[in-house]
């Protein structure tokens, strides 16, 4: 029999499983900060919330186990005394489960990494109402199929996340946002190895340098060679996300795309113009539908919303 602590031993998870139940449309609501992504929820679905609270901070292991309903900001506040945080983006009001379900990474992706690489284990309630464990508690694990990665960005359509174990990372010794006018973003990207984020709006570049003090200071000196460097906070981001390749994103112009902010080195373009949906091949679409059907044959989980499978 299993040597791993069973999720059934945690009353909060058991209670959450019973809330999910075994039938009827159901949706887990987090902070609802991205509630329209992937379509609108079928109003007939029962709305429930995932367990809230930090289960355990394993600072010497660089991991944390946390209820999916916990606010990312609360998690990071709790982690701060350990000098650690996670890669999850800090959007005001968003929950850990929501951030994983949406699967997006934050603007500091160059430095902090992607959300999809931050999740180690997920306890979720299946469409059948069972408590299921995907992944494992350690920082490295290839035991079995990677159901965890499948869940990141799945918008809650494959199972209801109850709690998760996340990888943490040390908060850098020094982090500084600065701003440069009229500088080619490629130059910043090439010169600034400590850049955790480089944003470009067609004119100005904002840089988050992060790392050990001497390295950040050396990079700031290098940036000063490119022009007058001023401390600044990152710009407001336009509402729509356009996923492009890194080199392609640097060809974005105001005449074509209005007001925009590019995540340099990443390829994401934040724009106020509507973004056309991405077309996928029939084979990939069929594969997505089979995946949904395999995990949720009756379509009861988060009906109305889709990670591209309908």
């Amino acid at each position: 029999m299993g040597l791993i602590r069973s999720p059934e031993s945690n009353p909060a998870l058991v209670e959450f499983a019973s809330e999910v139940g075994r039938s009827g449309p159901v949706v887990v609501q987090g902070g609802a900060t991205h509630w329209s992504v992937g379509g609108d929820v079928d109003p007939s679905a029962r709305v429930i919330g995932a367990p809230v609270g930090i289960v355990e901070i394993r600072a010497d292991e660089m991991t944390v186990e946390v209820g999916a309903g916990t606010l990312v900001s609360d998690l990071h506040t709790a982690l701060r005394p350990t000098g650690q945080r996670t890669a999850l983006p800090e959007v005001e009001g968003s929950t850990v489960g929501g951030a994983i379900a949406v699967g997006r990474s934050g603007i500091e992706r160059l430095g902090r990494g992607q959300t999809r690489d931050a999740v180690l284990q997920i306890h979720y309630v299946s469409a059948d109402g069972d408590l299921v464990t995907a992944g494992g508690p350690t920082v490295k694990n290839v035991s079995g199929f990677d159901v965890v990665r499948l869940f990141v960005g799945s918008l809650g359509t494959l199972g209801c996340m109850a709690d998760v174990i996340l990888r943490t990372q040390p908060i850098p010794d020094m982090e500084v946002w600065s701003h440069l006018d009229n500088t080619p973003p490629e130059q910043v990207f090439d010169r600034c190895a400590t850049a955790s984020s480089i944003l470009w709006n067609g004119e100005s570049v904002w840089i988050l340098t992060a790392g050990y003090v001497p390295d950040v200071e050396a990079d700031l000196d290098a940036l000063r060679q490119l022009g007058p460097l001023t401390p600044d906070q990152p710009p407001e981001l336009p509402p729509n996300r356009w996923s492009r390749r890194p080199a392609e994103s640097l060809t974005t112009t105001k005449t074509d795309f209005g007001s925009f902010v590019v995540e340099v080195g990443v390829g994401l373009v934040h724009t106020d113009r509507p973004v056309a949906p991405v077309s996928v091949s029939a084979e990939v679409a069929a594969l997505r539908r089979r995946m949904k059907a395999a995990f949720d044959p009756t379509g009861r989980l988060n009906p109305g919303r889709s990670a591209g499978e309908v």
Binding site: G153, S154, S243, G267, R288
Partner: peptide
Amino acid sequence: VMLGGLDAEPGGYDLRGAFVG
């Protein structure tokens, strides 16, 4: 099939992630 993509935020289930490993 082509799983994943070279763009910043390929949409849909992370079938690439499921395939690796």
